[in-house]
Design a protein around this nucleic acid. Structure first.
Lengths: 348, 348
DNA sequence: ATTAGCACTCTGTTTAGTTGAGTGCTAAAA
DNA sequence: TTTTAGCACTCAACTAAACAGAGTGCTAAT
């Protein structure tokens, strides 16, 4: 759909966007002629700019101002013009790697990653907690702890362990417990989540009750634990660098700023914001490409991070459409790689 | 130290503060005379206001403006003048109670509590995750899962369960495992955290190794798990309602706003902000009473929430010094009560 | 001790004028 | 045909002056 422009239009558009990203103000023909050595006069550039505006790549805030890139202009820039100049990644990689050493627990890691990402990009950032979907249960065991306390331990195929201390009234002897364990694990092990319906659990309970005496209470708890483990609630989304938003002149409008912060304040809208539409590795959503109306003066860069080839979480950077795309994109890529590695290791 | 003022000064100061809290602008003598039926003329009020300024309860932004309350004025208001008019607590209690039903897991609960608190107060809010200190270990068991996989389960006196799947090279038979279990639990059960030093663990290991053949690797993992459980890292602090900050005209200054958001962005400063100095149930920190310099144009209301009589976390509300103290204080109290209850139950 | 009256102060807003960056168009040059 | 110099025109942003109005402090009368 997007047709490539001729070489001169390319370099003029490129120059205008670069200039605008730096200055945040409309860019005039004379500035381009002076600062960028394109070998043509400002008048020529002026004519080209008029063309680019007609084609939809540029906009004019008012008649006697310079031009600013449109969303379409940025899209062309991101897709075609921009070179992915790598950031100075050594320092970043080093800083990020240290996080895994100094912080333990998913929370510590994700939260400091979010902070780091915002400190390197100087934009607001979001990272979602890893979600483990399509889990299968590989171990399930009830163990007697004391007279009337049982410990239920469930292990999933990815090595996650969940447990619950259960207080029961009845007294289950070891043989009974062993029987239950054997029975349950055979019915549940490696079953797909779609098979473990409420219906299925009812069946199992009926079968089990027929064999041995077992309280409904105990079975309900087991059922609930399994449910919570394999259908975990949506992970929290960590936010960092909100104060960087204020560095951007496009957010000087306090009403608009409020709308943006309001979106970051609420998990549901936030989730919508970083929900990747397709399963691309990295997605850049520019201005109106955002679903959320209030975000249509912003851009977001979204990437997945994964265990193996399964995406488990999202990394997002939020800035004005006038965002430093090359720098942000390569930073996000690096963070995504490292976070994937760290999470995979934690999860071993 | 604070000396009470006479009755008329009280009511004038009260009126000025109330008026200022509503309007956010300097309050003049005529406004007070008209709106509040104090039975005296504006001239008299004017004289009293001059007195109150001299005493330090009021300030004058410039000669021909009205007066605004000083930090000292607010302190007097909070300590002496203000009546704790209860908020309409029915709806609040109901909304909060529903959270515990619909959300499971500490995260879900604390995070939605934070959102609720900010929606009811219309200020920025912070709630720290519960921290469980002074834990003792009441159960510890190694269990064989497969040939070379052991599950380590540790239960603390408050019912917390922690577990770790350990992959080992050696093959431990059931008798050996039972021996280790018995040995360890006897050495560790109900020991105070101060007794479980690295030194002590070394001793235990030596004793154990003398009895049976045991890899250093396994023991190290056990040691580390115990450490992490009883010396948990600082809990996350959840933030809500940052966008409400923008509703307050005192934050229209974008530079100042940036400083405040910056503090909310960083866990360390945030922690400093809601760190309660004394063990009071509820603390109001007005303006300069805040340690953090950038926060000295704000007030924070901080309360503990607890399990039994042990404080496990903090609830904070952040607003301008011109905060609606009565409403905030009673809301915070309610949230603290309910959160205490919910957390205590989750933790059963 | 209180209050009415009044001159004075200071901010915030409005209005008019000015500046300057930038455009589009035209006509000349390449 | 393309490029460029030149110029009139536009419009936001800034500045300065004028103005309105809320509020004070002081004085003198009650």
């Amino acid at each position: 759909m997007v047709k490539n422009l001729d070489e001169r239009k390319n370099s003029i558009l490129h120059a205008i966007i670069q200039e605008h990203i730096i200055t945040a103000s409309p860019v005039g023909s004379r500035t381009i002629a002076k600062k960028y050595d394109l070998g043509v006069s400002s008048a020529t550039i002026r004519n080209e700019m008029a063309d680019l505006e007609e084609l939809g790549y540029l906009e004019q805030p008012h008649t006697s101002a310079g031009r600013i890139p449109s969303d379409k202009g940025y899209r062309y820039y991101v897709d075609i013009l921009m070179k992915n100049k790598g950031v100075n990644s050594d320092k970043l990689v080093k800083t990020l790697s240290e996080i895994s050493k100094n912080r333990h627990g998913i929370h510590g890691i994700v939260s400091s990653m979010t902070t780091m990402l915002s400190e390197f990009t100087k934009y607001a950032t979001m990272i979602s907690e890893p979600e483990f979907k399509d889990l299968k249960i590989s171990e399930l065991q009830l163990m007697k702890v004391t007279q009337n306390k049982l410990l239920l331990v469930i292990v999933t195929d990815n090595g996650f362990v969940s447990d619950k201390l259960i207080t029961i009234k009845e007294d289950l002897d070891k043989r009974k417990i062993r029987y239950i364990n054997n029975f349950l694990i055979n019915k549940i092990r490696d079953k797909d989540i779609t098979d473990l319906t409420d219906q299925y659990f009812k069946e199992i309970e009926n079968q089990l009750v027929r064999k041995i005496n077992l309280s409904h209470q105990l079975f309900t708890i087991i059922n609930k634990e399994i449910d919570e483990l394999i259908k975990p609630e949506d992970g929290k989304i960590y936010i960092g660098g909100t104060s960087y938003i204020l560095d951007q002149p496009e957010f000087n409008d306090i009403d608009y700023l409020k709308k943006v912060l309001n979106i970051l304040d609420h998990e549901d809208t936030l989730k919508k914001l970083i929900k990747a539409k397709n399963n691309k590795e990295l997605e850049v959503r520019i201005g109106h490409e955002n679903e959320i109306e209030e975000m249509q003066r912003c851009s977001v860069v979204i990437a997945n991070y994964s265990i193996g080839d399964k995406a488990v979480g999202k990394i997002g950077v939020l800035g004005p459409t006038r965002m430093e795309y090359p720098r942000v994109i390569s930073t996000v890529n690096i963070v995504s790689d490292i976070l994937s590695k760290i999470i995979s290791e934690v999860n071993k």
